[in-house]
Simulated assay, not measured.
Amino acid sequence: MSQPHAESRTLIAEDLLLLLMDDEKGRLAAASYAQPLFGGALLAELALDGAVEVEEKRGMWHTAKVHAVHPPAGGAAPDPLLARAWEVVAEKPRTAQGLVDRLGRGVRKELQDRLVARGILERRETKILGLFPSTTWPAVDVQHEQQVRASLRDCLVIGLMPTPRTAALVALLAAVDQAYKVLAPGDLTSQRGELSPREVKRRAKAITEGDWAAKAVRDAVAASQAAISTAVMVSTTTAATST
């Protein structure tokens, strides 16, 4: 079995994908709104790198826009996904709502392919009922995913201060109401007993609104979170009215 490249940092979008994938079935829990979710994750990553920022809101009727500041970190060889996302932001100022779908277009498959190349997922081609082609992406190395989940438990259950990357990940999970669901049942027990979904959601909200990074970064992540939440609401409403 191939091993993941330890020296290479995973993107927040990749961590998000791993958390939301069923390790055995190889399917994504949030497939219906994957595009804005992963687009928002790329936008949040650019914000953490200081590559983009959200302008100050100037009144009730003003919609703040995202501006490119400088290319993402990485020297002569930045991450290609982040570099492409930054180029989209740099085209012209856009709202976060206008960016998340644009940035997330086609990203899910690319993230899966990247994780296969790193030996974390495996691509399997099957047929449903022996007729219809289907592709699944089961996990083959869960070590990194377990580390990410442990970081989430540290802040959501134990109450430790999250790193900026973990706090951004919490904000993105909260946007799709998955902060509680990605924790294993055994992870929800603290010294005060087992936490309820409501308590985990409350803690996720507190982390998202906390002072975990510079204001410019928090503003950009908050804009990404709001844009994803809106996209999910629209998707849910559309699905409900079409049935």
Rank of each mutant, 00 (worst) to 15 (best):
R9Y: 02
R9T: 07
R9P: 13
R9E: 14
T10G: 07
T10A: 03
L11E: 01
L11P: 00
L11Q: 00
I12Y: 00
I12F: 00
I12Q: 02
A13T: 08
A13D: 05
A13Y: 05
D15R: 13
L16C: 07
L17W: 08
L17C: 09
L17K: 07
L17E: 12
L18E: 08
L18W: 08
L18I: 07
L19M: 12
L19S: 10
L19N: 08
L19T: 08
L20T: 11
L20R: 05
L20S: 05
M21P: 01
M21I: 06
M21L: 15
M21Y: 11
D22M: 04
D22T: 01
D23S: 13
D23P: 14
D23Y: 04
E24V: 11
E24Q: 14
E24C: 02
E24G: 09
E24Y: 06
E24S: 11
K25D: 10
K25E: 13
K25G: 13
G26L: 09
R27H: 04
R27K: 10
R27E: 12
R27W: 07
L28D: 11
L28F: 15
L28C: 12
A29N: 01
A29S: 08
A31W: 11
A31S: 14
S32R: 15
S32K: 15
S32W: 11
S32V: 12
Y33R: 13
Y33D: 13
Y33E: 14
Y33T: 15
A34G: 02
A34E: 07
A34V: 01
Q35I: 07
Q35E: 14
Q35A: 06
P36W: 06
P36C: 10
P36K: 06
P36I: 10
L37I: 07
L37K: 10
L37G: 10
L37D: 08
L37F: 12
L37W: 13
F38I: 04
F38M: 10
F38P: 06
F38H: 12
F38G: 04
G39C: 00
G39Y: 07
G39Q: 03
G39S: 02
G40V: 06
